[in-house]
Design a protein around this nucleic acid. Structure first.
Lengths: 245, 245
DNA sequence: AAAAAAAAGTGTACATGGTACACTTTTTTT
DNA sequence: AAAAAAAGTGTACCATGTACACTTTTTTTT
């Protein structure tokens, strides 16, 4: 891998995190100070992203961005979109920011976007010099660049994917309870589900394996733990069709 | 739109066409002759694609490529993938070809890929100087560049999309029969369906509207024609969830 | 020690949707 | 008039989705 960033190619990462209560997205604060007076000209948030090295695989670049913020490797990543508009970086604030960052603000940048899935509780965010933190998805608006559009696409793609594959486990700890799993589906789809029906449904998933172990330290009846078996999943998944619309 | 192609950004189009019998893809023949002896060094096929103009929207570039080959506007287009490998154009034949085309073969090119849907019978292919034609998807292999990978992704994306939205109509004439619609689903999913069950299923789709008109000039009982009503579809589509895996 | 609080865990009846399956009808061709 | 070709049609069974409320287990509080 050659150590030079390509001026026209970037990746952006929509990093979803579940904290057992809400669906969150990892955002980077962007505060632009007046070059002389140092007063705040604007301050907002963006997704995590970076240009790719000239000889770097796109998904490797996304992994690098993710590793930079979380210190983690082997995180679930899914390519979902590339913004189409050549004017995607031309808003006034974005231009100021790009200049400050030493970029040529006129340069067209095609960004290939990935979403990744994490359990908030198991990540320690590597802040370094930047202010990086989880934000509940319901409260996110007015992101920098075209990142509102990218985030909206990411959520749709996550929903489609979660309808078709059991990727929710990527956002849960190794051992989790059925209530936690249900809450995860509820926050991703922004819907509530009936507890008995949800359990009936997941009880058919053979790759969901009940442990003898129970929760500890909770001030109510402790729940049974479950684990996800990738092995069982890979062996039992069958390509069922239902062109439902 | 500035009339200069960006050296690092391209679009590729997987143009699917249905001919009432098979699923086809529009391919461009690529024959490389020895610069002096004019003997054929290699000859194969590629998807349709082109670099984008420096100030051109990606989807507009895909529309342009499509219009170039078919003369058509307002064709269904869906972005589905961007190849990730920086070495995607480095195979020997591809390098020869790029040089011949006046491109810098060392230059990294990120391609954003679209699939589009057509009815073969309603398209007259604009061959110009190139040999462009429909190829049954089952017979396609060893495409140039990384186009085998792109095509495989396109087919998966088409299947997912067709399971969730009634985009099959994009590959049929305005008026079509239920047998034609069934055949379309069969070739896309490479499965056979039961006629009665298929009809029971589509009879629930209110945007499928039966006409009084019947087929003419067929040597058997003529079938009723149906049309797709986008209006009815848009009004009745409800976001039903089934996280089925 | 008893009561309250909190969430876990459980079953049934009904409606809807999927699946397996074969013959009659209508039209053209011979 | 008969044959060929594809259109068109219904039922029984099984699986899945949905609506719905109480008991159990544990901790916390009094």
């Amino acid at each position: 891998m050659q150590k030079q960033l390509h001026p026209n190619i970037s990746v952006d990462c929509v990093i979803f995190g579940f904290d057992f209560e809400k669906l969150n997205v990892l955002l980077v604060e962007r505060t632009y100070l007046h070059p002389e007076t140092k007063e705040v000209i604007f301050s907002d948030y963006t997704l995590a992203g970076n240009h790719v090295y000239v000889d770097e695989n796109l998904v490797d670049a996304a992994k690098r961005v993710l590793n930079n913020l979380t210190g983690l490797d082997n995180i679930y990543l899914e390519q979902f979109y590339a913004p189409e508009d050549p004017g995607r970086l031309l808003k006034k604030n974005d231009q100021l920011w790009l200049k400050k960052e030493g970029k040529n603000p006129e340069e067209r940048v095609v960004s290939v976007c990935y979403f990744s899935l994490l359990n908030c509780k198991e990540v320690s965010i590597q802040k370094k010099d930047r202010n990086v933190d989880w934000h509940p998805i319901s409260e996110i608006r007015n992101l920098g660049f075209d990142h509102d559009i990218i985030l909206a696409q990411a959520l749709k793609s996550l929903q489609v994917k979660l309808q078709n594959e059991p990727i929710g486990y990527e956002m849960l700890p190794l051992k989790f309870t059925l209530s936690q799993l249900q809450k995860l589906y509820e926050v991703v789809f922004d819907m509530e589900f009936d507890k008995r029906n949800f359990r009936k449904k997941v009880s058919k998933m053979k790759y969901l394996i009940q442990l003898d172990e129970k929760q500890k330290g909770v001030s109510h009846k402790p729940a049974r733990y479950y684990i996800f078996s990738r092995d069982v999943y890979e062996k039992t998944k069958s390509d069922i069709l239902n062109f439902s619309v």
